[in-house]
Amino acid sequence: MAMPFDDNERAAIYRAIYERRDMRHFVRGDVDPDVLARLIDAAHHAPSVGYMQPWRIGRVTDAALRAALHAAVERERIRTANALGERHDEFMRLKVEGMLDCGELLVMALMDGRERHVFGRRTLPEMDLASVACAIQNMWLAARAEGLGMGWVSLFDVDEVRTLMRMPSGAKPVAILCLGHVEAFYPKPMLELERWAARMPISECLYENHWPGEKAAAKTALEE
């Protein structure tokens, strides 16, 4: 039987999970190249369906390109606010990204030619996206262990970012990742601190055998 990690190792993993935050506030400063290399390697060791490894990681080092990506996000931020109706003003007060302040800006994308990969995707083609999400989570947890903050920005027009990053046809940007030094990690998720939303109780996300409500309905039908 495989042996578990020792108590300190196990505690460190759970600490990274529970203290990981979607960071929007960064302190200016470069990310150590060796640390960045470790984080990218952590992402590259994520699980992927059919071992297709669909992630492509773009490092944005050009200041003009960073500014253009930020402008694209700002345009979508306004569109999102307009779509939120009565929560427009509340949303506009939120800080949703730190793209101009973070030490590193990365664009995580899906590879092109994904239709060639059938293993694990014949009935669930979106598993390529799930695999990329695993890579992002690997990087996020590793960044927390390194004392770096990371933020996932998803407010952008896909075609606009695809064009800015000169991606081939079929490739798709999934996330703009802000990575860098922070003064402190939020004690709770920022959207919880801002009372935008609250963490759901596990009891509302966990069920046994049958979907919640369906089991009760089936029992009622039998009793009738």
Rank of each mutant, 00 (worst) to 15 (best):
A2D: 07
A2P: 06
P4Y: 08
P4T: 10
D6M: 09
D7K: 06
N8E: 09
A11E: 07
I13E: 04
R20V: 11
R24K: 13
V27G: 03
R28N: 09
G29R: 05
V31L: 07
V31F: 05
D34E: 11
D34T: 10
V35L: 03
V35E: 01
A37C: 01
R38Q: 05
R38K: 09
D41Q: 10
D41R: 08
H44S: 12
H44V: 09
H45W: 13
Y51Q: 10
P54S: 07
P54Q: 05
W55A: 11
R59I: 14
R66T: 14
A68V: 01
A72F: 12
R77L: 11
I78N: 10
A83Y: 04
G85F: 00
E86T: 14
D89Q: 13
E90W: 02
F91L: 14
K95P: 04
K95F: 04
E97A: 14
M99S: 03
D101W: 07
L106H: 01
V107F: 06
M108A: 15
L110W: 01
G113H: 14
R114S: 12
R116S: 15
V118N: 10
R122Q: 15
R122I: 15
T123M: 09
S131H: 07
A133R: 05
A133L: 05
A135W: 02
N138Y: 04
M139F: 01
L141P: 00
L141H: 02
A142W: 00
W152K: 06
V153A: 05
S154A: 15
S154H: 12
F156C: 10
E160L: 07
V161C: 04
R162A: 15
M165P: 02
R166L: 08
G170C: 10
P173R: 09
V174D: 06
I176K: 04
L177I: 15
G180L: 01
F185W: 02
Y186V: 01
M190Y: 03
L193T: 11
R195N: 10
A197P: 01
A197K: 03
M200C: 02
M200R: 11
I202S: 12
Y207D: 09
E208Q: 09
P212S: 08
K219L: 14
A221S: 08
A221G: 07
L222K: 08
E223V: 11
E224A: 10
